[in-house]
């Protein structure tokens, strides 16, 4: 079983987000990037499949600031092979992919992933900066593979995969998918495992990141953005300030007024 996990980094929403002077994009200069949390689940699901049924797990990621640490962390969890897709160095390699849309990323990554001849490709079901659909189904079509998303459980047996697809309200559809296939992971069967920083450091000494140069990016199929802005809500919450005791007092009176106390 040859499993490939495609990972991208996304803005950390805990940090302040700003619009750049063009008014049509996020300001990259202060952006802190972290692994897309659903990609982290995809890594976990791949490692679980390997632990259960054997095989090889290869992580593929476009180059971003901080991507090496993400790749080494995956290796410390049990990934066998790490591949980094590098962009046009003259444009500032680590910046190229932050601004790329998923159509461009999918085409670039498909070229590399095709060579790996995977049985199964896992990636996060979506990412917080998707504006032209999620990466997974776009990649699947580029590879000519079937795609099923919103997955929270995967079993593999003789040439097909059984994937638990989530619908609203907790309903699950068990989908049988012919291999090779791409799955969009919503949640791994267990929370992504923690690995100590010391273990990641040790892996860094032995694991190697293979670099592949990406062809020129082709973003066609993604929309052009004319304006980005922070939503100005029609109504904003009435904010309660003061000491914890004062705020607690106010909340108690709100509870009483609402008839729940």
């Amino acid at each position: 079983m040859n499993i490939v996990v495609l990972v991208k980094l996304v803005p950390d929403l805990v940090e302040e987000l700003n619009i750049d002077p063009s008014g049509a994009a996020l300001d990259m200069s202060w952006l802190r990037l972290i692994i897309n949390e659903f990609d982290d689940h995809a890594i976990e699901q791949a490692i679980l499949l390997k632990e259960r049924g054997g095989g090889q797990v290869t992580i593929v990621a476009p180059e971003y600031e901080g991507v090496d640490e993400v790749l080494f962390t995956a290796a410390a969890k049990g990934a066998d092979r790490l591949i980094k897709l590098s962009g046009d160095a003259s444009a500032g390699s680590a910046q190229v992919f932050v601004a790329a849309n998923n159509h461009a990323l999918a085409r670039a990554c498909a070229a590399v992933i095709k060579e790996l001849q995977p049985d199964l490709v896992l990636t996060g079901v979506q990412a917080n900066n998707d504006l032209d659909g999620p990466l997974g189904p776009t990649l699947a079509e580029c590879l000519g593979m079937p795609y099923v998303g919103y997955i929270s459980g995967v079993t593999v047996s003789d040439g097909k995969v059984t994937a638990r697809k989530e619908y609203p309200g907790g309903l699950i559809a068990e989908m049988e998918v012919k291999l090779p296939a791409v799955l969009g992971i919503q949640a791994a069967e267990q929370p992504p495992r923690y690995v100590a920083v010391s273990k990641v450091r040790m892996v860094m000494k032995t694991a190697a990141i293979e670099e592949r140069a990406a062809d020129a990016l082709d973003p066609s199929g993604g929309p052009a953005v004319g304006r980005m802005f922070q939503p100005e809500a029609a109504v904003h919450a009435e904010m309660i300030t003061g000491s914890p005791d004062e705020v607690a007092d106010k909340l108690v009176s709100i509870f009483k007024e609402a008839g729940v106390l």
Binding site: G133, P137, Y147, S220
Partner: peptide
């Protein structure tokens, strides 16, 4: 979301 992206690539239409 499972089908729109594939259609975009297959039909060459923007999404």
């Amino acid at each position: 979301a499972d089908v729109a992206s594939g259609l975009s690539i297959k039909l060459g239409l923007p999404l």
